[in-house]
Structure formats: C-alpha cells, structure tokens
Design a protein around this nucleic acid. Structure first.
Lengths: 193, 193
DNA sequence: TAGATATGCAAGCGTGCACTTGCATGCATT
DNA sequence: AATGCATGCAAGTGCACGCTTGCATATCTA
C-alpha cells in the first residue's frame, strides 16, 4: 500500500522539523498529498501515526557480538568497530531519535528505546575492559569510568551532529573523528599512570 | 514583584516537562496560583513568557580567561578547569537548554545561544593545543580533532545527564567522571604516535 | 484619605485542531 | 458485469486554546 507509506514519510519529516504538537493532521495530509480522512481511516488517530513511525524504525544495534564473539582483544580494532556500529545506529534512527528528544514523554516506549542502547553498551564495555585488564592488554583502571568516557565521546559527537547540524558538522568529518578519537582513547587506557 | 516570578518559575517547570506547545497558559496560571489574565497583562502573550525565561537565564560562560591569561600550560590542570566551567554552564542553564532542544526553531535567538558556546570553545581549544605543541608539552597531532574529542566527551556526558537523567546518572558521578576523563585524555595527547 | 496600581473573577470571542460521517468515485478481483 | 475496497470530497462537531474585556477588590503610596 503506497498511501500509508507516503503518510508516514510526510509525518516523520514534519514531526522531526516542528515537533509532534507542532504538526496538524491536516498538514500531514497535505504534505502526503492525501485526504485528511484517509489518515484516520488508516491509523485511527494522530498518535497512531507516531506509533507506526516508531514501529517501522525499531532497529536495536547488536554490540554484544562485536565485544564478545568477534572481539580481537586489540582495543583499537574493537573500539573502532563499536564506534562504527554506534554511528550507524544514529544514522539509521536519526529521525526517531530527534522525535524522541523533542517529544519526550509522549510515548514512554520511545523513551525506553532511546535510553537503553547507551546503558547496555556501557555494561558491555565494562566487561570488555575487565577482560583486557586481566589479560594485561590495558593498564589497571576503573572500567566504569573508562567505559563512560568512551561512550560520552561517541554519544556527544553524534548528538551534536544531530542537534546542531546546521551550525557545526563541517568542523570535522565522522571518519577522521572516530579514527583519531579511538586511537587517542586507546593510548590513554594503555599507558600506566 | 512576586507575581511575575511565580509565573516564570511555573512556566519554566512546565515547559521543560511538556514542551512549549504542550503547556497552556491556563495550566501555567494554575501552577503559579495566578489568574490567567494576569499572565497576559504581565507578558503580553504566551511567547512573551518564553522570552522572559530566556532573558532571565542568559549567562554565557567565559572560557577565554581559563585558556589564555589563567592558563598554566599544564593540560591536566587547564582542561580540568575548562571541564568544570562547562559543567557549571550546563547546570546553570539546564532549564533553557532542555527547552531549547525540545522547542528548537521556536526562538531563533535561543538556538544561537545554545549552539555558540561549543563552537567557541572548540576554537579556543584548538589555539590552546597549538601553543602546547609549539612548546613541545604535548605530541604533534591534529588539534582540530583533539579539541573535538575533548569537547564531545564533555558535551556527551552532560547531555546524557540532562536528557536521560531518570535512567542513568547513578552510573558515575560528575566529579569522578571528569577527573578520570581529563587524565585519560591528557595521557592520550601526551604520548607520541 | 484619595488615587493609582496590581490582581482576581467571569464571561466571552475567534480560531485551529483532532476526528467523524455520508456519499461519490475509481480500481481490482472474481 | 458485479462486488468489495481504498480513497477523495465536503461538511460538520465539539473542544481546547490564546487572548480580551469590564468590573470588583485589595494593596500601596503621596
């Protein structure tokens, strides 16, 4: 069905731009080149569109594999892989992340979907760092803090790209940022105080 | 005048929670224990309250001093100072930062106020790192990228505290995070390739 | 004490919004 | 050709919202 696709696409674009409450069903209909009543026949309510948007985008990243089975235990390699995956996650879900931030509290489920990946990744990183310390690959240190530093770095870069894209973004490209940041971070966790 | 204070306080709290469009003037009046008409007599319009909120909170941080006159050129010391200042900036402006993110595009002025500090701080850090490289305090490297890494780390930590406070926050305290992150970062920029 | 100022109260105005409904039309399957 | 289904169209409903107004009351100042 092509109609509901157009509606979802139009709604996503408009809500991302103006926020859920800043967009009327009439505006969505016009943007989708569809009659307003069609929206309600398809989705039941305005909230129904939002739910459809989220459902369509639900795509949780799998960091487990990268940090367990596939791990090389060379932190520079593994962390670069993680950062790439994280970056991909932000790109794929840019729309609902922005919507989730703007219209926080609108859909509790959405809040969770956005809050969980960082928490999950943090605990995986902690395990990973613990293992590398036991294997004496990296220096002894507080894994919780190291994981948080790395995570904040990635999260911060992606968020500032998402939120302030029109102002910044040209300062540094994603590739060079991660290449440099990972290697800098690895130097930090290698060296003994 | 105590009345307008109560109105601003109530509006800030409600808008932060539900977004500008998610709050009615009636709700603000009730929360402030004030008659709705009083709001319009004081601020003219709903938008007027928002402007008053921003005006009251305008407080731009001064990083120049920390990285120029007051700089010790010991990166661990200077960067810790910067991070403290950045952290303070987020605490003082938590309300309007959250509002600015939720209701982006509502007030162009607000967008600027929030986007400028990171950009400014980035260019100051670039200058700072250039100087330390010339003085051979730190290793030769791309200052743009180093500055971006540091900035993203701070920005990411503060943003995730602001946005996901109810889910995370207890993982790591601010003090230990910055102490650890700065020292880790400094190790990274000290060591040669 | 007299007047100005700030606020409360109640009623209301116009508008935009989410959502509904009844009917007509096109399109595809059988 | 007949049937069902998705959609368009137009009109409308009820409600919440931003905002106004006229009047009464309280508080403060000259």
């Amino acid at each position: 069905m092509q109609t509901s696709d157009r509606i979802i696409e139009a709604a996503t674009w408009l809500i991302k731009k103006n926020g859920y409450r800043g967009v009327s069903t009439k505006a969505i209909a016009t943007e989708a080149k569809v009659n307003e009543s069609t929206i309600f026949r398809q989705f039941g309510s305005k909230q129904g569109i939002l739910e459809a948007i989220i459902e369509r985008h639900s795509d949780i990243p799998q960091f487990e594999k990268l940090l367990k089975e596939d791990a090389t235990d060379n932190p520079e390699v593994d962390l670069l892989n993680v950062s790439q995956q994280y970056r991909l996650f932000f790109h794929k879900n840019a729309d609902i992340i922005l919507i989730g931030i703007r219209d926080k509290g609108m859909l509790p489920e959405l809040d969770r979907v956005l809050a969980d990946p960082p928490v999950k990744l943090h605990s995986l990183l902690v395990e990973y760092f613990e293992r590398l310390q036991k294997k004496k690959v990296i220096a002894i240190q507080d894994e919780r803090l190291a994981a948080m530093s790395f995570l904040s770095m990635c999260y911060g870069f992606q968020m500032s790209e998402l939120i302030h894209r029109q102002y910044q973004s040209q300062l540094v490209t994603e590739e060079e940022f991660y290449k440099h940041s990972v290697s800098l971070f690895v130097k930090g966790i290698l060296s003994h105080s």
